[in-house]
Write a protein that binds this DNA or RNA. Structure first.
Lengths: 251, 251
DNA sequence: CCGGACGCTCTGGTATACCATATACCTAGG
DNA sequence: CCTAGGTATATGGTATACCAGAGCGTCCGG
């Protein structure tokens, strides 16, 4: 049978209409983006979210909002206290340190796998990413190093070829990003970080899983130690949350 | 009825009553338990859940059920397909291997921390746990080794003192448990496992973080390799659900 | 003038009604 | 007898109404 029906699809190339876009998913994305956009740790007071107000603003009913909130709560971005409100969570120093510790475990495993399995071109791309940044390492661009930093770490994760690693670190990165913006300015951490990164790249290039793993782990644990030592402002800010958010909301 | 309440709070410390009191939490717990109870990988066909039926059976409305489903879906236990149903997810071999890989990363970090920070009595307790099991290591009790195994690994996690590690591995353990029940019977894995465990305990006792980390990692990666090699039955079973899905080339 | 009890209001939790569509079955036409 | 199209039903998604409890202001009594 030489093509009785020769690809009828090719005639009308109907794009896949996204049946997956549901209000819940939309609300989830919007809220998560909003939360990530605000620099949580710069805000002086706790931020409260109101289901009804959000549903009005987004133009949907409370139901999808609530389901999105349920997701965000499980991910640790908000905390809902019955009959009191939904609050954006600010992590304590201890929690941040734990996050970085977990990150260290996952990232070192990713580095190990990357050293074993990553393609040559991927590693080359990683080096290029960091080299490009290095050339433009002015003080002006220090701010955007935070993003380059995240990009580097995410690249390592991706190069491990383990989708679950990427999935499990996704939310960690979000919190990490907020923290980096602050710690990056302390103690010459940016330069040290760049150095560490190049060492990791070298380990990948020579295909040394043990070394790559160790370097990645120590790099992350170094950050953990740094936060442990200099991150007290995190807890200091968190103590403010006793203040009712947006005190003037009543009428 | 202006009866002055004599502050029962200060007398009895019943604080965690409201934790499970919400219907959503209740439904979530019930559903998760039910899903864990059934051996997912023994079931021949996909299992479908019906919101309305469940709400009737549990005696609550659909709303809390849906929110619980939302959580379970994010955790990867179910998958809901609009207008078709909610299905219990069966992980593919690849996904299981990735889970074990992630586990390796987290658990090796936990072992490292445990070697550094765990109390002497905790380590002693861990040894006791395994020793007790060893004495009763009949073939009859092989079945319950699966649970002892999980208990060992969870103990390591707990001894790390990192709550987030425990939280992030919680769901991994659930899937792992189902897998262990099968792999444990293959290839003398039970005995090897016990040996590995004792080596890890020894590393903790001599406070050698590097060694503990390496042993824990290799132990887990060994399981990953084993599943990679002998876990094809996972995909075989999973392929059943592909039939009705059938990407719809026509129709 | 001060304090405590009452009650208003706002908020998340729950129940229920309705909607759009995937699936299955049924019917009519060849 | 077989296939195409219509229709009934089932199922997840969404909107809305109501409930109970926590804050906070107010009012009355001392």
């Amino acid at each position: 049978m030489p093509e009785p029906i020769p690809r009828p699809r090719s005639i009308i190339d109907i794009s896949r209409l996204d049946t997956g876009s549901t209000f819940r998913g939309l609300a989830y994305a919007a809220l998560k983006r909003a939360i990530c956009a605000m620099d949580i740790y710069d805000q002086p007071q706790e931020i409260r979210l109101d289901e009804r107000r959000l549903s009005q603003r987004l133009g949907v009913s409370r139901t999808p909002i609530r389901e999105a909130m349920t997701l965000l709560e499980q991910e640790g971005f908000v905390r809902t206290r019955p009959r009191r409100g939904i609050f954006v969570v600010r992590k304590s120093k201890r929690e941040i340190v734990e996050m970085i510790t977990v990150m260290a475990g996952l990232e070192s495993m990713a580095a190990r796998l990357a050293a074993e399995r990553a393609g040559k071109s991927e590693i080359a791309g990683l080096r290029r990413l960091m080299t490009e940044f290095r050339t433009g390492n002015d003080a002006d661009r220090l701010a955007e190093y935070s993003d380059a930093n995240i990009a580097f770490h995410q690249a390592i994760i991706r190069m491990s070829g383990c989708a679950l690693l990427a999935e499990m670190t996704e939310n960690l990165f979000i919190h990490m990003r907020a923290i980096r913006k602050i710690t990056i300015h302390q103690d010459n951490r940016a330069e040290r970080s760049v150095l560490d990164h190049f060492r990791i790249i070298e380990a990948l290039e020579v295909r040394d899983p043990e070394l790559a793993e160790r370097l990645a782990r120590d790099h992350a644990l170094g950050l953990a130690a740094h936060v442990e030592q200099h991150g007290d402002f995190l807890d200091a800010a968190a103590s403010i949350d006793v203040v009712p958010a947006e005190a003037g909301t009543h009428r």
